[in-house]
C-alpha cells in the first residue's frame, strides 16, 4: 500500500556537482533530483511518488544554465534548467526552431511553462509530454553527467518505456543540444479528442528535408498513444527519397499504422487513434510540403 501525503522528506540544494552526486547516490529510489519540480509535485500530490529527499538543482551553476548558439552556428545549446518560458521568449529559438514556440502555445499553461524546466521534462519519461517527441524529431541530444563521468545520448535513446528512462542513478541532464538545420522544416501536431486543452490522444512531431516535393530525409515521431515517444521508421523508409504524392502518402500512412500498436485510453480507442494517426501523418506531411514548396 502506498503511503499518502507529502510529508516526511527533506530538501537539499547542492551547489556543486560532486555534492549533488553524493546526495543522489544513496540507492534509495525515493531520492530524486528536482528541476522546476512541476511534474514531481504532480506525482507527489497524486500519491504516485513519495520522496524521502528532493535534491534541488537550482543552485548548480553554469552547466545547467544558459542558452546559446555554438561558435560555428551548427547547433544550439540549451541548459537543462531553462524554463519553457525562457525558450518561448528566446529570439534564437524563434529563428532556428519556430516549432518550439508553436508547440508552447498549447503546452500546459503559462504558469507551468514559467516553472517547468527543459531537463526535468526530458527526464520525466511521461509519454504524453509534447516536447520530447519534438526534440527527437529535431535530432536533439542531451549531455548527461553522473558519478562515473559524462556521456552524450540522443534524446531518442533516453526512453525505455512508460515513465522509464535510460538515466542511471545519480545521472543528471545538464544540457540539450539541437542541431541547426536551415533546410529542414518541422511541425508538431497535438491531436486532442475531448476538450481543446487536454493531453494529446496522439502527438506527432515531424521534421523533413525537402527538395521541391522530394523528401530527402525526415523524422517522424509519435507520442502519447505508446509507452514512449517512438520513431516511425517504417513510414520514414517509405517516404525517404521519394516525391510526395497521394499514393505515397497512403503508403506511408499504411506503414505508420502497421508498425505500431497504439494504446486504448480515456482519450480514444486503439482503433480510433490508429485512424487519427493515418490522417494526421498525411495532413502533417502535406502541410510541410506546401509550406516549403507552395504550388
Amino acid at each position: 500500500m502506498e503511503v499518502a501525503g507529502l510529508r516526511g522528506f527533506d530538501i537539499v540544494e547542492p551547489s556543486s556537482l560532486e555534492e549533488a552526486f553524493g546526495l543522489l547516490g544513496t540507492g534509495d529510489p525515493a531520492v530524486r533530483p528536482m528541476g522546476g519540480g512541476t511534474a514531481l509535485m504532480l506525482m507527489m500530490k497524486s500519491e504516485l511518488f513519495k520522496p524521502t529527499r528532493l535534491v534541488s538543482l537550482r543552485k548548480l551553476g553554469e552547466p545547467f544554465h544558459g542558452l546559446g548558439e555554438s561558435a560555428d552556428g551548427k547547433w544550439v545549446r540549451i541548459g537543462a534548467l531553462n524554463t519553457f518560458s525562457m525558450l518561448d521568449h528566446s529570439p534564437l529559438m524563434k529563428s532556428h526552431f519556430p516549432i518550439i514556440s508553436r508547440t508552447m502555445n498549447t503546452l500546459a499553461n503559462l504558469r507551468v511553462r514559467n516553472v517547468a524546466s527543459v531537463g526535468g521534462n526530458l527526464a520525466h519519461g511521461d509519454p504524453h509530454l509534447d516536447l520530447p517527441p519534438v526534440w527527437m524529431a529535431l535530432d536533439g541530444e542531451v549531455r548527461i553527467v553522473g558519478p562515473s563521468g559524462e556521456r552524450v545520448s540522443a534524446v531518442a535513446d533516453l526512453y525505455k518505456g512508460y515513465y522509464e528512462t535510460t538515466l542511471e542513478e545519480g545521472e543528471l541532464i545538464t544540457e540539450l543540444r539541437v542541431p541547426v538545420k536551415p533546410d529542414w522544416k518541422s511541425s508538431y501536431t497535438k491531436v486532442t479528442t475531448r476538450a481543446a486543452h487536454d493531453w494529446p490522444a496522439i502527438g506527432l512531431a515531424i521534421s523533413v528535408q525537402l527538395s521541391g516535393r522530394q523528401i530527402q530525409d525526415l523524422r517522424i515521431v509519435l507520442s502519447a498513444a505508446l509507452d514512449k515517444p517512438t520513431r516511425l521508421t517504417a513510414a520514414e523508409t517509405v517516404l525517404r527519397g521519394r516525391d510526395i504524392g497521394e499514393a505515397l502518402l497512403r503508403e506511408a500512412a499504411d506503414a505508420a499504422t502497421e508498425e505500431v500498436e497504439l494504446e486504448t485510453d480515456n482519450r480514444g480507442s486503439q482503433e480510433y487513434k490508429t485512424h487519427l494517426l493515418r490522417i494526421y501523418v498525411t495532413r502533417a506531411l502535406q502541410d510541410l510540403v506546401s509550406e516549403a514548396a507552395p504550388k
Binding site: M1, V3, A4, G5, L6, R7, G8, E47
Partner: peptide, 12 residues
C-alpha cells in the same frame, strides 16, 4: 492536515 493525509494512507 498533511499529517491527517499521511496517516490516512496507512489505514489498511
Amino acid at each position: 492536515p498533511s499529517i491527517a493525509e499521511e496517516a490516512a494512507g496507512l489505514i489498511t
